[in-house]
Design a protein around this nucleic acid. Structure first.
Length: 702
DNA sequence: ATAATAACGAGA
DNA sequence: CTCGTTATTATC
């Protein structure tokens, strides 16, 4: 039932009139009378009987197209459960809005619609005028709840939701009937730089479900590597779903997949396409016309037949977090999908998130990394440099904001007729507090939340628990003074232009993103995520204003800084070909160390260990509850939280609203989501007016 | 929103 | 104890 009421998040049974028998197949959109009015719904399964005494009839089958595949239906239920949301909300994300004209068009010559007509009971509809026999299970519901009287022929095998390696049907069913191993394994070339890479591709080609966390080498043509993994999967007779963060990455992946797989074997799916093209791409996948879907966030639920691989590139990019309820994260959705569908998984990036590290720690996935010798030959020469306060104080210098090492490195590259990339953070980060002496972010002594200044005069207070810390002492150096992290950049482009007269300056940022630049001497000023590729690689990459990144009031400040640096530094030429990177930051800091060594894994392991110690995600599961104070209190009052749940807050949110955090051990994650969802349901059943926003794994914890 | 159902109280 | 009215709750 496509209604947003949490207490209606379950299945309802309806009779199928004989006239609709053929069209009423699982996965179709339907209209039913509910509480007196016509509402949209999803037909999830056909069953022989119902416990409900008085059933109403299905009003209408909106379209015979079974847009919701059984695999996606199951996934959607699991995602709703994980995020304490309702199935209807997830289905809105999973199935794009119908576009009737697109559905009608072409029908593919010949094949007079075998996709839609189900050979269930041909002709029988003529017999009894309106047979009150077959029931259709409909809206909102957990397939698990439904005992599924007789397993419908179309159901996925092995639907036992066991953890790893389900019992009998595990391996055999995933091996497709068709072609076995391709005669020659498709281009494993680039994967040979990673000792476990070729085995990973072989497993995909063999129809198995390998799971990997991949740390890419500097300069890696990741899009082609992904295309090769996809091709291996397709060679096994299975399909693949690949999700990237933005359209620029998608363009790159599109070209690579097209080149490796040939034309007509994949579609791109992204919200940027607009309704018609999006629905067309969706239908092509659902109808099995193409085995591969690549796209942005919108593609994470894309239906492909016999799913063999899910992949995500750069899972640390916050564009992978869905902004609509129940706020699922692409990585989590895809991994859940791999688990349920017994498909392979690939989580790759130049950087590595703590979440990806956790997959390795728990043994869920295997690491694919190059050995140190290979890393050394591929990586540019990377050096840190201090802030150079003397230089900054000299008002006459054109290069006021550029430390001397950075300036020299840029000049050398330009002289060698090579392009220079300058990464400048966007402004507008929240001012937070750090130690005035050693610049360690200031954390609450009680709950380890971030400290901030509520007003110019007030003493620092925790943004999580609200406690005021009158006398702060830095745990690192014992310093007692705090400083606000200063941000600001922007002028950099003009200043650099003046510093290197006669050199073309290009900018790439929010408004206008460049895909690539030519190989000759030139300056490119880019904000993180908008760095263009340079033909042949950059001679020098400068990473400026790193304080703005590192002192951000964010749990992921270090991780995010490293991710952005690695992404930019990966565009430089190898050291052997003259590539250099200069990062304006203290070389002793962990993210800087990780950059210097090109060791994302080391940093991620360290980060995860720290989060374990502090009780932060992903070592624990957190949920946030936001709303008017009375509503938040009411919901938490209603919720039967697990015993070991820890409630933090409240802290003020925007306007009149406030926010509370609930923290539980990972083992209680499902219980927490269940309790919160039930509480929202109870509130909506009693028509509590003030809404509360519930977020599991909120992206920002502050 | 609306209908079934439970709860309640007054009158027989 | 029954009927009529009103609060409550489920909605196939």
């Amino acid at each position: 039932m496509d209604v947003g009421l949490a207490h209606l998040d379950r299945l309802f049974d309806y009779l199928v009139p004989a006239a609709l028998d053929e069209q009423a197949v699982p996965g179709t959109r339907v209209k039913v009378r509910f509480a007196g009015q016509l509402v949209d719904g999803w037909l999830l399964e056909r069953v022989d009987s119902s416990d409900h005494p008085r059933l109403a009839y299905l009003e209408k089958v909106v379209s015979p197209e079974p847009v919701l595949s059984p695999e996606v239906a199951r996934l959607a239920r699991a995602v709703a459960d994980r995020y304490a949301g309702s199935l209807a909300d997830v289905l809105r994300l999973a199935v794009p809005p119908r576009h009737a004209r697109v559905e009608k068009e072409d029908r593919r010559e010949g094949a007079a619609g075998p996709a839609t007509t189900l050979p269930a009971g041909p002709e029988t509809e003529a017999a009894p005028a309106v047979t009150p026999v077959p029931a259709a299970r409909e809206p909102e519901a957990a397939p698990a709840v439904t005992p599924a009287s007789a397993p419908p022929a179309s159901a996925l095998p092995g639907s036992g939701e066991s953890a790893t390696g389900g019992p009998a049907p595990a391996v055999s069913t995933t091996v497709p009937p068709g072609q076995r191993r391709p005669p020659t394994e498709p281009g494993h070339g680039g994967w040979r730089d990673y000792p476990t890479g070729p085995a990973y591709l072989r497993a995909l080609a063999d129809g198995r479900a390998p799971r990997a966390v991949w740390s890419a080498l500097a300069g890696e043509d990741w899009a082609t590597r992904y295309a090769e993994a996809v091709a291996a999967t397709v060679a096994s007779g299975r399909g693949a779903v690949v999700v990237v963060a933005d359209n620029r990455d998608l363009d790159r992946l599109d070209a690579a997949v097209g080149a490796v797989l040939g034309p007509g074997r994949h579609v791109c799916l992204s919200a940027a396409l607009g309704p018609a093209r999006r629905y067309r791409a969706f239908l092509a996948a659902r109808r099995g016309d193409v085995p591969v879907v690549i796209g942005t966030r919108a593609a994470m639920f894309a239906p492909v037949e016999r799913l063999g691989l899910v992949a995500i590139w750069d899972d640390g990019d916050d564009l992978h977090a869905e902004p609509r309820a129940p706020y699922p994260h692409t990585r989590e959705v895809l991994l859940t999908r791999a688990q349920l569908a017994e498909a392979g998984a690939l989580v790759g990036g130049f950087a590595r998130t703590a979440e990806a590290q956790l997959l390795l720690d728990t043994g869920w996935a295997r690491e694919v990394v190059a050995d140190r010798a290979t890393v050394r030959t591929r990586t540019p020469a990377i050096a840190p440099t201090g802030d150079d306060p003397q230089l900054a104080r000299d008002p006459g210098a054109a290069t006021a904001r550029l430390p001397s090492l950075a300036w020299t490195a840029a000049r050398d590259a330009l002289r060698a007729d090579l392009p220079v990339l300058v990464q400048v953070p966007r402004r507008g980060y929240l001012p937070s507090l750090s130690c005035a002496q050693c610049r360690t972010p200031a954390r609450c002594p009680h709950c380890a939340g971030p400290l901030a200044l509520p007003s110019a005069t007030a003493p620092p207070a925790c943004r999580w628990c609200g406690r005021v810390t009158a006398a702060y002492a830095c745990p690192e150096c014992g310093g007692r003074r705090l400083r606000a992290a200063v941000t600001g950049a922007r002028r950099t482009a003009e200043e650099l232009g003046r510093a290197f007269p006669g050199v073309p300056v290009r900018t790439s940022g929010r408004d206008e993103v460049l895909a690539g630049v030519p190989g000759g001497a030139g300056l490119v000023i880019a904000t993180p995520g908008a760095e263009p590729l340079a033909e042949g690689g950059y001679g020098t990459v400068l990473l400026l204003d790193s304080w703005a990144l590192l002192t951000r009031a964010d749990l992921r400040a270090g991780e995010e800084a490293l991710r952005r640096w690695l992404t930019a530094a990966a565009l430089a030429r190898p050291a052997g070909a003259g590539g250099r990177v200069v990062v304006v930051a203290d070389g002793a800091l962990a993210p800087v160390q990780a950059l210097l060594r090109w060791d994302a894994g080391w940093f991620a392991a360290r980060e995860l260990a720290e989060r374990r110690e502090l009780g932060f995600p992903p070592a624990v599961r957190m949920a946030s509850v936001t709303g008017l104070p009375a509503a938040v209190a009411d919901l938490l009052d209603e919720a039967r939280l697990p015993d070991d749940a820890e409630v933090l807050g409240p802290v003020p949110a925007d306007g009149e609203r406030e926010r509370m955090l609930v923290r539980v051990p990972r083992a209680r994650a499902a219980a927490l989501a269940g309790a919160l969802h039930a509480a929202v349901g109870a509130r909506s059943a009693r028509k509590a007016a003030d809404p509360v926003r519930l977020q599991v794994d909120p992206l920002d914890l502050f």
